[in-house]
Design a protein around this nucleic acid. Structure first.
Length: 587
DNA sequence: TTTAGGG
DNA sequence: CCCTAAA
């Protein structure tokens, strides 16, 4: 179990890196990684295969193809490829070593934090005899890695030279260059980097690292209670690759210290390339880690402690949200799809995850197109995720249900009303529009601005002018032709869809008391009391309602008007009567 | 895609 | 205002 997780994390990390190197232009690296994630066999030697293939300049396809190749064959293949492409791959080697080790780093951090097998992993990673002595008991894959590394080392001394040459300043330069390239070519990596807010590695001394490792060994069960430790672990992992690289030369504890020292030199590049991945891996493989990290973030940012309850959830959520927004919103676009999906995947287990995920998802959503979240989705999400009670629509966006997240991942849900309405309303501007605009158009600009923000449509009070326009539209087109009314009378209102018109008309009918009229006159008037609608409008509604019985039987006869008019005959003004006639004639 | 209707 | 079924 432990090894499986380890292998998964390692595998995924190495795959991403590998693909990135081979296909720098591919911006969907992480996505691919996630997609193939279940299909991949969590085999430990696969990492070496990837490494070897990349090392030899092989195509990334080899990762898939060589999946089942026996380890021995792989080992045989490695040296030849290495020798063939040695001169060309000098830089690649350093980079690949670097990137390849990222997977190891992931393993290290993950296991160290979660599964208590950190000793083994650390040993494999840092190759520290002291640590390894306590960890050699298990983790067969680890030994495999060692074997492979040794083979490559023995069969190609040039590698040692290369690594040693690169280990210092030149190497640092190479790494930085590589990092630059990666950053430029694959935004995904950048996003990964920026997603996680990591501590400054430069502030981490080797002593701290060692002490941390010791701590990890002392508490093998993984310290999920100490968020501080998590931070420290983050600091540790950048140093690993150097150790690994240098391990080729000497397997001695003394070698580690210089390696660590050099680590500080290569710090900038390493920090950039790794931190994101760390976060990514954390999200991917370790709910617990995220949990602890989150707690740390929340506590540190809000200084408010823990949020256990649902209601508290919201508070903390907002608190962390504010912080994270400022911190992360400036960052590069994240690898949105995998990140979101991964995050959500883990949530059911840990209630507090929701808080965490909420803030993250918020950023995620904010950065991504708004179209990703449709009203329908939002609502469903609210329903499905019972643990989170977020009333505000905007916030509910952040919560993605488990049901939906898969589809959320693959497709950008169709935007329904907002999009169509926006396009439809903004394009037309006919005489009628001008006429009505001249009439009394209020808060149009503000409305449009709000719409442009892409925020969810909130409840928007109907203004009197809007109601009048609606009535005019109904009088002209009759009841039911909401789309026509919308086009002609609300062309500039991005909100107020045809459905809205229909709903409003329905409400107007209720307000006008058309149906209650024959029931009880007193009730109608009582309702009228709290209705802000002007009397004339209500009258017009009544008239139109009489003219066009609500949904069905539209265009009822004039006879009805006359029959109904006696009831309120006194209220019908001449203009109204003319208007009614006009509408009738129009139809 | 629009409309009717329930929530 | 949202959602969905039906046309």
């Amino acid at each position: 179990m432990e090894n499986e997780h380890v292998a998964l994390g390692l595998e995924d990390g190495s795959i991403d890196v590998e693909r990135m190197l081979v296909e720098p232009e591919d911006e969907h690296i992480s996505m691919d990684g996630v997609d193939c994630f279940p299909e991949r066999i969590p085999k430990n030697d696969m990492d070496m295969e990837d490494f070897s293939s990349s090392f030899g300049g092989a195509n990334s396809c080899l990762v898939q193809e060589e999946k089942d190749v026996p380890r021995g064959e792989v080992l045989d293949v490695i040296p030849s490829e290495v020798q063939v492409g040695y001169f060309q791959l000098k830089n690649e080697f350093s980079s690949m070593g670097e990137e390849y080790l990222l997977g190891v780093d992931f393993v290290e951090s993950i296991t160290n934090l979660d599964y208590g097998s950190s000793e083994c992993l650390l040993t494999s990673v840092s190759d520290c005899p002291i640590l390894r002595s306590s960890a050699d008991t298990d983790a067969p894959w680890k030994s495999d890695q060692f074997r492979i590394m040794e083979v490559s080392e023995c069969q190609n001394d040039q590698l040692n030279i290369c690594s040693s040459e690169l280990s210092d300043v030149p190497r640092c330069h190479d790494l930085e260059t590589l990092d630059e390239n990666i950053s430029l070519k694959s935004p995904a990596l950048c996003s990964l980097e920026n997603i996680g807010n990591f501590c400054d590695f430069s502030s981490c001394s080797f002593q701290e690292v060692l002490s941390d490792e010791m701590d990890g060994r002392l508490s093998p069960t993984g310290d999920m209670y100490s968020s501080l430790k998590v931070e420290k672990d983050d600091e540790i992992w950048p140093a690993i690759p150097d150790v690994e690289t240098n391990r080729l030369q000497e397997e001695d504890v003394s070698a580690i210290i210089p390696a660590q020292a050099r680590c500080t030199e290569t710090l900038p590049a390493q920090k950039r390339s790794r931190k994101p991945t760390q976060r990514y891996i954390d999200e991917l493989a370790d709910p617990i880690l995220r949990y602890s990290k989150r707690r740390h973030e929340v506590s540190s940012s809000t200084s408010k402690g823990k949020c256990l309850g649902v209601q508290d959830n919201k508070k903390c959520h907002t608190g962390s949200k504010a912080i994270k927004f400022s911190a992360e919103e400036t960052s590069v676009i994240a690898i949105q799809v995998p990140f979101g999906s991964i995050v959500q995947k883990e949530c059911p287990k840990i209630p507090e995850c929701d808080t965490v995920r909420g803030s993250d998802s918020l950023n995620y959503v904010a950065k991504s197109k708004e179209s990703h979240v449709t009203p329908q989705n939002k609502k469903k999400l609210d329903e499905v995720v019972a643990t989170i009670h977020v009333k505000k629509r905007n916030e509910s966006v952040m919560v993605t249900s488990q049901k939906k997240r898969n589809s959320f991942l693959k497709e950008s849900p169709p935007k329904k009303r907002i999009g169509s309405v926006t396009s439809g309303s903004q394009k037309r501007d006919d005489p009628l529009t001008a006429l009505h605009r001249k009439k009394k158009d209020d808060c149009f600009t503000s409305e449009i601005q709000e719409e442009a923000s892409g925020r969810r449509k909130h409840h928007r009070l109907w203004t009197i002018s809007e109601v009048r326009k609606l009535i005019d539209g109904v009088s002209q087109f009759g009841v039911g032709s909401w789309s026509s009314i919308k086009k002609l009378f609300f062309p500039t209102s991005a909100h107020r869809t045809s459905v809205d018109l229909k709903d409003k008309w329905r409400n107007l009918l209720k307000a006008s008391g058309i149906h209650e009229q024959h029931k009880r006159q007193g009730e109608k008037k009582r309702n009228m009391a709290w209705r802000p609608l002007p009397k004339p409008i209500l009258h017009r509604v009544c008239e139109l309602a009489a003219m066009y019985p609500y949904p069905k039987g539209r265009k009822s006869k004039i006879l009805h008007i006359h029959s109904d008019s006696p009831d309120k005959g006194a209220d019908i003004t001449l203009s109204n009567y003319r208007r009614i006639l006009r509408s009738i004639n129009g139809n």
